[in-house]
Amino acid sequence: MSSDLIGTWLAATLTLAIFSFLYRDNPLYRAAEHVYVGISAGFAVIYAWAFDVYPMLVESFKVHLGAKNYFEAYILIIPALLGVAMLLRSIPKLTWISRWPISFTIGIGAGLGLIAAIQGYLLPQIFDTLRPLININNAIIYIGVITTLTYFYFSREHKGLTGTVARIGIIFIMVAFGASFGYTVMARVSLLIGRFYFLFHDWLPLIR
């Protein structure tokens, strides 16, 4: 129970310290910021090893070896070697070895990126645009998509017809950005209310 009390006081101090930054940079914010970076970096390392490296490499190797599934066990040597290759960067003469794991991860990004762009972006966006022009809203969507796409036309100067269409496109883009902006305001304000509730309810029981 006392550890919870200490925890609540600590959490409240850190909350006030972070908020103090809104006024100006000050020693309290600096301290909270450095503590935050330190703790969260340490947390990330433990998280990566507890949830990724240990179960996926060490435990998986043991389980497969136990089940006499030698292929699945020994293939894990590849990611282990790639991981160690990353660490060899620290030795100046062996820095080049880290190009291999980096290339492997970039290969994953490029392969998945190519497919995901079609499956996750292109198909649904085109599908949603194909609506018959039987009402004003469908017509606005059609004009919006076509003009926005024209704005992203790079190999022609935005003059004449292309220029006019692209200008309509940027109007759509700005209205869309404004709408997203306005839509987020309430969500952010409610987060702030949440923090004040913590301060004035959990820490100082002023609100019942």
């Binding site: 972070i18 930054f21 940079d25 914010y29 600096r30 909270a32 910021e33 450095h34 935050y36 970076v37 703790i39 969260s40 970096a41 947390f43 990330a44």
Partner: peptide, 14 residues
């Protein structure tokens, strides 16, 4: 810095 979203923001702000 850190991979924590807001920890990163705090660090960069600093």
């Amino acid at each position: 810095l850190t991979s924590d979203q807001f920890g990163y923001a705090a660090g960069v702000d600093g």
